[in-house]
């Protein structure tokens, strides 16, 4: 690799370099595709830096091929995840929260390394955990809120239910590297979709660490796939891939939004644009955000006479 400076592990602050002290083990940040942690097939990397320019870690600079492989993994996982019981999905989302709680300190220190204050970082991690618990509770309830039996004027039983849209691409917000990602990921998977997430380019550490949490929480492989890289290279792929059913673009860049919507039109992808300066705001947790990546199916059957 061609860096001139060595990327340092952000976490173990107590690990000094004095004589007799133990040399810390640095973490390798990799991708998360299909339940595995591969490096990018492209062999490229970028360096995550602290606001003062200090190198924190080298991350995979994902390629279009990585994205395509992630779509294949996500598609393969749709059948199992969308048919998992709502109870099981709730259990798994709650398990993610449990795992995250157990690794609070690591997430806080990653956020601090990327420029958050200790207070803000703690608040962001706590809000992320609580948000996962919130959606864990919705998995077996949103259907009851948004479904209905329709009183048609013929002799038919007619009902409408929610079904997951399918494979959802999420271009996560740049700010709030953990909470921004969780706020968009949780409602999509709570509803039975599978996802490919492009993590924040400037605050990517927590996304990769979250992948480890997801893995430990028994989220089936392929349900969540996490890539690191640049929007410039990848957001167009999220919009144009013909086997992606919906794209959630977290952006306030008018040109990026327009370009995404134009490309997404080619297979009628559902495009959801979200922007926020504060992902901890209450409007960022709602069952209506689950509904954004649901389709309504209406079924008719004769009642007989």
């Amino acid at each position: 690799m061609g860096t001139t400076e060595h990327a340092k592990q952000p976490v173990p602050a107590e690990a000094g370099s004095g004589a007799g002290k133990r040399l810390p083990i640095l973490k390798t940040y990799k991708l998360y595709i299909g339940g595995k942690f591969p490096r990018t097939e492209s062999g490229r990397y970028f360096t995550a830096r602290a606001p003062n320019g200090t190198a924190l870690a080298n991350l995979c600079l994902s390629s279009r091929k990585d994205f395509r492989e992630a779509v294949v993994a996500a598609r393969a996982a749709v059948e199992k995840w969308s048919n998992a019981t709502a109870y099981l999905r709730g259990q798994i989302l709650y398990r993610i929260a449990e795992m995250l709680e157990g690794r609070r300190a690591q997430f806080v220190s990653e956020l601090v390394a990327q420029g958050s204050t200790e207070t803000d970082a703690t608040a962001e991690v706590d809000a992320s955990i609580d948000r996962l618990v919130y959606y864990a509770g919705w998995t077996d309830k949103f259907q009851q809120i948004f479904s209905c039996v329709n009183p048609v004027s013929t002799s038919h039983f007619n009902f409408s239910v929610c079904e997951p849209t399918g494979v959802v691409g999420i271009v996560a917000p740049e700010a709030d590297g953990l909470l921004g990602l969780v706020s968009n990921l949780a409602p999509a998977i709570a509803g039975g979709n599978t996802c490919i997430v492009l993590a924040s380019n400037t605050r990517p550490l927590c996304a990769v660490t979250l992948a480890e949490v997801l893995h430990a929480a028994d989220v089936p492989g392929g349900v969540v796939n996490i890539l690191t890289g640049t929007r410039d290279e990848l957001s167009a792929q999220f919009a144009s891939h013909m086997d992606v059913n919906a794209v959630i673009l977290c952006s306030s860049d008018a040109a990026e939004i327009q370009a995404t919507q134009i490309k997404a039109a080619d297979n009628l992808k559902r495009t959801i644009v979200r922007q926020s300066s504060d992902w901890s705001a209450p409007e960022h947790q709602s069952p209506y955000l689950i509904l954004d990546t649901q389709e309504i199916k209406t079924t008719w059957h004769p009642i007989g006479s």
Binding site: V152, N245, I296, T298, W300
Partner: peptide
């Protein structure tokens, strides 16, 4: 698909949501 008719077909009603999945 957004509308499924079982043992019937081409039924419509104002109270019954209509619309498509995918490119429909």
């Amino acid at each position: 698909a957004g509308v499924i008719w079982a043992n019937t077909f081409s039924k419509f009603d104002p109270g019954s949501p209509f619309g498509g999945y995918k490119e429909s």
